[in-house]
Design a protein around this nucleic acid. Structure first.
Lengths: 198, 198
DNA sequence: CCGTCAAGAACGAACGTTCGTTCTACGATG
DNA sequence: CATCGTAGAACGAACGTTCGTTCTTGACGG
């Protein structure tokens, strides 16, 4: 009967998740303490534990947000009509990436999730499934590129999709770790490698 | 005067480093305890602390091993005479990668180092420097490919090098996280994307 | 060839701290 | 005013590290 609105609940939850993301970016999953998250959220211990029963559940929520973020973007790219040339599809994918490589971007969290996935089988399965899904979107793009004659019909679409997909983390890892080439430079390099003028 | 041989000291150090690597692979840097490492090494607390003054120094030693491992391999590739075609250089780089993506491979540690580098500035600088060095080796390969006419002389060698370099982590991340395509498949995909028969 | 001895190497109990989580009391809400 | 969300002190476990002690090594005098 005396209950708070669903909006309030959702807002509180977001408040905690956002605080956790900032903390995890600063200190990594296992070096941030629950008290760090609690202080960052400006709440009390009890309040946070009402929304997340454990630290692990908080890590999971953040991980799903970080890994799942690209799904919608890529699904949309694969669905465009007329089909996007592969170089342009890649460009748009990198444009999304660019919004998420900043100091508080999801992709920095994703890198930490990769590490975590190596010791948490459930998380590993989630990551594997999500990334396989992303790769399938690239595969759809490749098949349509084959229909249009952009790529040899003999090529294995899964293989080409893997190569194309690889170019995405291949870029943002460089960005995050070395400051890396900017998007235009990287794309120019890819196009030169493809032997097209772009 | 009464001292143990240098070989003994080196062997003990390696014994500790190897134990730490196994532990870090199982549990990540901050979930493995010093007691885990000590038990895995079969030594005592004091013995381990004689060789490494802190947990951080142990993490550093492992990180440098994992990140630095590729340097020699790539330097060698860039130095080959006659120059390697780019696709073959990539193939050889991936062959090295393949030896290090197994359950106890260095690249799994490298992924964890990427995460750690986001909160440890000293480690970040080391990683950035090392990876920039690797990219320069690719750049040398690209310049030589341009001399040989394999790639347009107009292309920016740094840009092409970044694209080529990106294909390496782009593969092993897929391997580690999704089981990924095998080396031959991935290379076939890259070659199809390059528009060459291979 | 052996016994001695100083010093380095290894040991592991113990310390202070900090962790994730629990619990009881309080205040706000409909 | 009944009830649920919030608060924050408190708890036991486990952490990284220290330190006083014990064991082992190898040069050296006999």
């Amino acid at each position: 009967m005396p209950r708070v609105s669903d909006e309030h609940l959702a807002a509180r939850r977001r408040q905690i998740v956002d605080a956790a993301r900032r903390c995890f970016l600063r200190e990594g999953f296992h070096r941030t303490t629950m008290h760090d998250v609690i202080a960052e959220a400006g709440l009390s211990v009890g309040a946070v534990y009402r929304y997340f029963p454990s630290k692990a559940s908080l890590i999971n929520a953040i991980a799903e947000e970080a890994i799942g973020g690209a799904e919608l973007v890529l699904a949309d790219l694969a669905r465009q009509d007329p089909p996007l040339p592969l170089a342009e599809a890649l460009e748009r994918a990198l444009a999304y990436v660019e919004t998420q490589v900043g100091d508080d971007g999801l992709l920095r969290i994703a890198v930490q999730v990769w590490g975590e996935a190596q010791r948490d089988p459930a998380l590993a399965e989630f990551v594997a499934g999500t990334y396989a899904g992303l790769r399938r979107h690239f595969e759809a793009l490749v098949r349509r590129a084959q229909d249009g004659g952009e790529i040899s019909a003999d090529a294995d679409p899964q293989a080409v999709a893997a190569a194309l997909f690889g170019l995405v983390p291949g870029w943002f890892i460089q960005r995050i770790l070395t400051g890396g080439p900017d998007r235009a430079t990287y794309l120019a390099g890819v196009r030169a490698l493809l032997g097209r003028s772009g």
